[in-house]
């Protein structure tokens, strides 16, 4: 086993492990077969599993997700790829009206064991229509489970949980993390959905992060340690189920909360999280809660502009220094 694996290769590894285990798992999406995916996240799947189980589609997001839904309702476990998460808007009917509602509105007559994978987030200079962090879009719809891994091993563990789930899962792979490396997942690695990880222990402040912002938060925590400020960093891993318990338990130790989100501040998932903390954890707090999130503008192209609107370690350090002095 290699010492390290990229996040990109972990995606293909995670899918392949599930396809080997369960013959009803199939993949569908644009350029996922011979091309191996535009982000090379499905390399090797066509060779190993063949064209019936790894199907290229036309550029038809509604057909991809709608067909995956119909297949999921009838005994298959599809993994559908929407190439860039921005394109979820092209098939949003299925994510907003169909997939999350069909079980409920039929009184539990059908299940939809479906994974929708998508490359999410900014930092690569793709401009306003290929860079958005849209995890909050899915977070606004009851009936979808949401995973957003930050490490290669978590990609594999959450993919296994997503594919095995009888509920629909939106699986956000972060574009900015594809080249990042980490320990490979051990054999049979399955994470529990809705179980956050404490990725760095600390006593002065709790920093809650997701996907790309985990590394940003850890970088900030390193710098704060030099100034004798001890930050605890929580990787939520999933937005639904939302692991509020781990956050509240951490606040019992730290009494200060910073939430770091890449999606826009307006309508971002952190708003829901801090509202729960304000409601159920008010007595735990010794300082105001702070949200560091994407700016409320479309994602700009130039590095100098994009750097201004995505959360940075500098912003986290500044915010926490103020908070600790409160």
């Amino acid at each position: 086993m290699a010492d390290v694996i990229t996040y990109r290769d972990a995606v293909a590894d995670g899918i392949a492990r599930e396809m080997r285990r369960d013959p009803s798992v199939v993949c569908i999406g644009e350029d996922i077969g011979a091309a191996g995916g535009v982000f090379k996240t499905t390399v090797g799947l066509l060779d190993e599993f063949g064209p019936e189980r790894v199907r290229d589609t036309p550029i038809s997001e509604q057909a991809i997700v709608g067909a995956a839904m119909g297949a999921a309702m009838t005994g298959v476990r599809p993994i559908a790829e929407i190439m860039f998460s921005d394109f979820l808007a092209c098939c949003w009917d299925y994510l907003a009206n169909e997939i999350p509602k069909v079980r409920y509105m039929t009184g539990g007559q059908v299940t939809v064991p479906l994974v929708i994978r998508t490359a999410n987030g900014g930092g690569l200079g793709f401009g306003a229509q290929h860079s958005q962090a849209v995890e909050n879009w899915a977070f606004a719809v009851p009936g979808l489970k949401i995973a957003a891994p930050s490490t290669p091993a978590d990609v594999v563990g959450l993919m296994a949980a997503a594919v095995r789930s009888d509920d629909p899962v939106v699986f956000f792979e972060h574009k900015g993390l594809f080249a990042s490396k980490g320990e490979p997942a051990p054999p049979d690695h399955v994470l529990e959905f809705g179980q956050a990880g404490i990725v760095r222990e600390g006593t002065d402040v709790t920093v809650v992060a997701l996907a790309s912002t985990v590394a940003t938060a850890l970088a900030a925590a390193d710098r704060l340690a030099e100034k004798d400020i001890s930050a605890e960093v929580i990787d939520l891993r999933c937005l639904i189920p939302l692991d509020v318990r781990t956050v509240l338990t951490s606040l019992e130790r730290t009494s200060r909360l910073v939430v770091v989100e890449e999606n826009p501040y307006q309508g971002g998932w952190g708003g829901t999280l801090v509202s729960i903390v304000a409601d159920e954890g008010f007595d735990l707090l010794d300082a105001p809660v702070k949200r560091i999130a994407g700016a409320c503008v479309p994602l700009p192209f130039a590095d100098a502009l994009e750097d201004r609107v995505i959360p940075t370690a500098d912003a986290i350090v500044d915010q926490i220094r103020t908070l600790v002095a409160y």
Partner: peptide
């Protein structure tokens, strides 16, 4: 909806179920 006899639903967003039927056929 009567899933037990293969009637897999009535959908109120116009056209949404045509891709679903396509997917059910793919599954078959």
């Amino acid at each position: 909806t009567k899933a037990s006899t293969g009637m897999l639903g009535s959908y109120a967003i116009v056209g949404s179920h045509l891709p679903m039927a396509t997917g059910a056929a793919w599954s078959a």
